[in-house]
Design a protein around this nucleic acid. Structure first.
Lengths: 138, 138
DNA sequence: TTATGTGCAAAACATTTGCAGGAGT
DNA sequence: ACTCCTGCAAATGTTTTGCACATAA
């Protein structure tokens, strides 16, 4: 079980981690690239992809594969659920209790070895709600 | 509120729906394309994408945006949860009770208007478990 | 007949990869 | 020194789109 194996602490990795830690949203690889590029203009998109993937594999960050086309990343490793705005696509954390018991239910209902679960809520965020009231899209 | 609006019943749409109904897995657009192409060799991939998207919008089928790179589709509209094999990526239904109460919890914990939720379990399927025993990857 | 739908091919995105040169230990 | 890592660019994979022709209602 390799937790933090042979992985060098390069400038690129430090900066990626720092920038990811600054935001409370869940940026896509490309958004991380944009943030990091302000500090390291010559960094390559491939490096960002490679390192996000690597850090996720090592449990340093979380890869959040929610709805939408792109993968998203999260500096918080503690288990938590997400909520995604159906209107604008934004993803946020949501602080409700972890439903420990449903893993057991899943174990019983399937012949899989259960590793875990994730809950994604969908809804309309405050900003989009207000926008739709203005334009009376209702 | 347009439920089943101006949408012609074309051969292509019938066949897509029939083929999707035949399988219990959750095929990607490309897999649906392969299935449908056996019966309609000249169908275009674009048509499959367009129609899957359209049917999902009209609530005729379900668009399942679980982990992995590609979107998947499901002929079953009734609410249910999914389980995804972390080893082979396969997605199946899992028959456990719908957790009605957590929508209320989410409503309280956020300032979103909650529309619903989805639970995705991750695990290792029977086939992959057996494979890993053989090769003692353990 | 006519608005909609289709096939095809190109475009637009998203992600991965090969390789020569660069950097951490 | 000797790996491991990076930038760059090209390759790959997925989804969307424009357009001329076909077809369901």
């Amino acid at each position: 079980m390799d937790q933090l194996p042979n992985m060098r602490l390069t400038t690129q990795r430090q900066v990626i981690l720092e920038e990811l830690g600054k935001v409370k949203t869940h940026p896509t690889a490309n958004e991380v690239y944009d943030m990091v590029r302000r500090r390291l203009p010559r960094i390559g998109l491939g490096t960002v992809y490679r390192n996000l993937e690597l850090m996720a594999d090592n449990g340093i960050i979380l890869k959040v594969e929610v709805g939408g086309t792109q993968k998203r990343f999260d500096a918080t490793v503690k288990p938590h659920y997400h909520i995604r705005c159906s209107a604008c696509g934004k993803v946020n954390d949501i602080d409700i209790a972890i439903q420990e018991q449903i893993n057991q239910a899943a174990e019983n209902a399937s012949n899989y070895k259960i590793l875990g679960h994730h809950i994604e809520f969908s809804g309309i965020c405050r900003e989009c709600l207000e926008k739709s009231e203005e334009t009376s899209i209702n």
